[in-house]
């Protein structure tokens, strides 16, 4: 059972918003005493997902939450865009696959950096990615 302790929504439409959101995530991570390496993993993962959102989804919003499960505290980030959606999620999760000109590390790399990763996408409607990083996970 994962409980949400605080919730905060940030719109991301321009590239500069990325820096703002990173700082916000950093604040939240420090608040729950997440270690530096996990902070870096979380913010890097967020950075990847934000780029996807800006590049493929024309921006969107991110919900930043502090969550708790048992004795564990963590940060949950939910990225939602109203972009074209991903037709084949299994393919998009493969290392080295990209429809853009990138390295194709974004989604699979992000999954490796966080504790929980969930992606839902509907063609023509948009994509939602949810990640959780536990403070000591």
């Amino acid at each position: 059972m994962v409980l949400s302790l605080s919730k905060d929504t940030i719109q991301v439409v321009r590239e500069q918003d990325v820096v703002l959101l990173r700082n916000r995530i950093k604040e939240v991570a420090v608040k729950i005493k997440m270690g530096l390496v996990n902070q870096t993993r979380l913010i890097t993962a967020a950075s990847e997902l934000l780029r996807n959102m800006l590049r493929y989804g024309n921006g969107g919003h991110c919900v930043v939450e502090i969550v708790s499960s048992g004795r564990n505290n963590g940060v949950r980030l939910t990225f939602t865009d109203k972009g074209p959606g991903i037709p084949d999620i299994a393919l998009a999760m493969k290392d080295g696959y990209s429809t853009g000109k990138s390295l194709g590390l974004g989604l699979p790399g992000t999954k490796r950096l966080v504790n929980e990763f969930d992606i839902k996408s509907k063609v023509g409607e948009g994509t939602t990615v949810t990640i959780i990083k536990w403070a000591n996970g």
Binding site: L36, V37, Q39, T40, R41, T44, E48, D95, L103, L105, P108, G109, T110, R112, L113
Partner: peptide
């Protein structure tokens, strides 16, 4: 390079 950045880069696959 900071150690945390090195860890993250490798886990990311870069």
């Amino acid at each position: 390079m900071q150690p945390a950045v090195a860890i993250t880069l490798i886990e990311l696959g870069l």
